[in-house]
Amino acid sequence: MAEAVAPPGIDILMPYYGDVALMQESVRSVLSQTDPDWHLTVVDDGEAAGVPEWFAALGDERVSYLRNPVNLGVSGNFQKCLGLARRERMVMIGCDDQLMPNYVARVRELERTRPGVGLIQPGVEVIDEHGEPVMGLADTIKRRLYAPKELHDGGPMSLAGEELAASLLRGNWLYFPSLCWRTDAIKASRGFREDLRVVQDLAVIIELVEKGESLLADSVPAFRYRRHSGSESSIAAVDGSRFDESRRFFTATADRMDEIGWPRAALVARRHRAVRLHALSLAPTALRQHDTALFRRLVRYAASTK
């Protein structure tokens, strides 16, 4: 039997929970695309009133809406969305992020320069909870310290193999919700692991890089990433749980990089300096909150060399 061929176009998948108004803004940003080569699927993991009716009123055959009968949680809902992807490419947009009108057009243009590329990172503008452009310390470091210098010169640029793995393990400068994936590549991965909350995106990316997939990164803005204090990563950072998770991930990844003969990537993973510096930056906050136990935990993690 001949293998089924994925239809062309981009599946835009939105695992939804949280603020209704921000989700609606995200959906409208998809509807505003200049290139019609897309389909949006929203998978609702919540119980907010009026949401099914709002989608029904859209009356747009390019938009599908599903509500989970039981709550699946973040990883479970991500995994369900992944299973619904049918087209050649897919993007897992955050339910409070926005596509710029040129997103689909720009991604398709980039793809034509590198047919079959595993991941495409378009240019990203960071916005706050009010939709205003913002550039805090985390994003400044991500772009100026960890992103390749060549990307600042205009891009697009291609990376693969140990060079890409080492770059991302030094500091993950990608914006996961903006990434456009080749669907068959991400579907062949382990997907979104239940044992990971904060670094699950990096885990999937490193797995694909190990399997030989490459990244095409661009500097032309096409995506708006919302940065606010209520994000999953911010909450995990406050209680220190992200660092326990990070230690497990980077230790296991370092061992794996050694196994496949990528010693530079292994060394970077073993050191994971960016995450340790992040822990140290949170220590003063723990002191201000009179949480001495958390303060000691953060300092110990920052000082750790394993």
Results as ranks from 00 to 15, higher is better:
64 S>L: 13
232 E>G: 05
184 D>T: 12
198 V>Y: 06
93 I>T: 08
279 A>G: 00
92 M>I: 15
206 I>W: 02
5 V>D: 02
57 A>N: 07
219 S>P: 02
4 A>P: 01
70 V>Q: 12
45 D>L: 04
120 I>V: 15
76 G>H: 04
120 I>L: 14
133 P>H: 07
13 L>T: 01
119 L>N: 01
224 R>P: 03
2 A>R: 09
271 R>H: 11
2 A>I: 08
13 L>M: 14
44 D>I: 05
217 A>G: 05
226 R>W: 06
257 M>I: 10
76 G>Y: 04
39 H>A: 15
128 D>E: 03
126 V>C: 12
191 G>Q: 02
230 G>Y: 00
209 V>K: 07
87 R>F: 11
66 L>C: 07
1 M>I: 01
48 A>I: 05
101 P>Q: 11
155 G>V: 00
5 V>P: 05
294 L>E: 05
49 A>L: 10
98 Q>G: 07
85 A>P: 07
199 V>P: 08
229 S>Q: 00
25 E>K: 14
288 R>P: 01
42 V>Y: 14
117 V>L: 15
190 R>K: 11
114 R>I: 03
145 L>N: 00
180 C>Y: 06
50 G>K: 15
299 V>T: 05
272 H>E: 11
74 V>N: 05
282 L>R: 08
45 D>V: 02
63 V>A: 13
159 L>M: 15
7 P>M: 07
296 R>G: 09
167 S>Q: 13
179 L>V: 13
298 L>Y: 04
43 V>Q: 09
264 R>A: 10
41 T>R: 15
70 V>E: 14
6 A>N: 09
32 S>N: 03
107 V>G: 12
17 Y>R: 08
261 G>N: 09
284 P>R: 00
